[in-house]
C-alpha cells in the first residue's frame, strides 16, 4: 500500500497509463455517441429524444463517481496519511463537477420535450443540484486550505466524507420519494431497457469512465509536478539565503 503511494512509482505508472486511458476513452466514448446518435433506434414513446440518454447517464454516473473518489481518497488521507491521497481527491473535483453539470444540462434539455418542463424540484433533480454545489464548496475549501498552510489541512478531507452522504440520497431519491424522474432502468443484474439502447449506453459509460480516469491521472501529475517545482524553488531560495 505504501509502495503504491510513492510519488516516483506513481509517476512511472501514470506516464503510460494516462495516455492509454485518455486515448482508449476518446475512441470508445465518441464511437458509442455516434452509435447512439445515428444507429440506435428511436424509443416507442419518447421517439428520437431518447438519444440524450447516451450522454446523460454516463455524466450522472461520473458526477457521482467523482465524489466517491473524493470520499475514498479523503478516508485514505485521514487514516494512512498517504502523500498521494490528498492529490487524488483534488484531481477528482474538476472532472466530477464538469460531469455533474453536463448531467444537469442534458437532463434539462431532455426534460423539456419528454416531461414538458425544463426543471422540477423533485428529489432526484434537487439532490443532483446539491451535488454540484458540494463540488463548488469543496473546491473553494481545498483552494483556501492549500493557500494558508500548504495542503496540510484536514478540512477538505472531512468535508469530502460528510458530503458523501448525498450519494445514496441521489441514488435512492427515486425509490424513497414520488418523483417526476424515472426509477433506474439498469439495476443489479437486470435491465428494463432493450438491448438496442443498452449496448451503446454501456459502451458510452465505459468510454467516459476511461476519459474520467485519464483526466484524473493528468490532474494528479500536474498537481504533483507543481508541488515538486515549488519545493525545489523553496530549497533554492533557502540555499541562496545561507550564502
Amino acid at each position: 500500500m505504501h509502495g503504491f503511494a510513492n510519488p516516483a512509482r506513481f509517476l512511472r505508472i501514470a506516464r503510460w497509463l494516462m495516455p492509454l486511458c485518455m486515448g482508449a476513452g476518446i475512441v470508445v466514448a465518441f464511437g458509442a455517441l455516434g452509435w447512439g446518435l445515428l444507429a440506435a433506434p428511436a424509443e416507442r414513446l419518447q421517439g428520437e429524444t431518447v438519444r440524450i440518454v447516451y450522454l446523460h447517464v454516463p455524466a450522472a454516473w461520473l458526477g457521482m463517481a467523482g465524489w466517491m473518489g473524493i470520499a475514498v481518497a479523503s478516508f485514505t488521507e485521514l487514516v494512512w496519511r498517504h502523500p498521494l491521497a490528498g492529490i487524488a481527491a483534488r484531481a477528482c473535483a474538476v472532472p466530477g463537477a464538469v460531469f455533474t453539470a453536463v448531467c444537469l444540462i442534458t437532463g434539462s434539455l431532455w426534460g423539456r420535450p419528454a416531461w414538458g418542463t425544463w426543471w422540477v424540484w423533485d428529489g432526484r433533480l434537487t439532490s443532483m443540484l446539491v451535488l454540484l454545489f458540494l463540488y463548488f464548496g469543496w473546491m473553494a475549501l481545498s483552494q483556501a486550505s492549500e493557500a494558508s498552510d500548504g495542503g496540510q489541512s484536514k478540512a477538505p478531507a472531512i468535508f469530502g466524507l460528510v458530503g458523501a452522504v448525498n450519494i445514496p440520497i441521489i441514488h435512492y431519491s427515486v425509490t424513497w420519494w414520488n418523483s417526476l424522474h424515472q426509477p433506474p432502468s439498469i439495476t443489479m443484474g437486470k435491465s428494463a431497457m432493450s438491448g438496442a439502447f443498452l449496448w451503446p449506453l454501456l459502451f458510452a459509460m465505459l468510454g467516459f469512465t476511461l476519459i474520467f480516469g485519464g483526466v484524473v491521472l493528468a490532474r494528479m501529475r500536474a498537481i504533483l509536478a507543481n508541488q515538486q517545482a515549488e519545493a525545489r524553488l523553496r530549497r533554492k531560495a533557502l540555499a541562496a539565503g545561507d550564502l
Binding site: 424509443e43 416507442r44 419528454a114 416531461w115 426509477p183 432502468s185 428494463a192 438496442a196
Partner: peptide, 16 residues
C-alpha cells in the same frame, strides 16, 4: 398544468 412521466422501460419504436 400537466407533466408527462416516463417509466424505466425503454422499447424500440419498431415494437410500438
Amino acid at each position: 398544468n400537466l407533466l408527462a412521466k416516463h417509466d424505466e422501460n425503454y422499447v424500440p419504436r419498431e415494437m410500438q
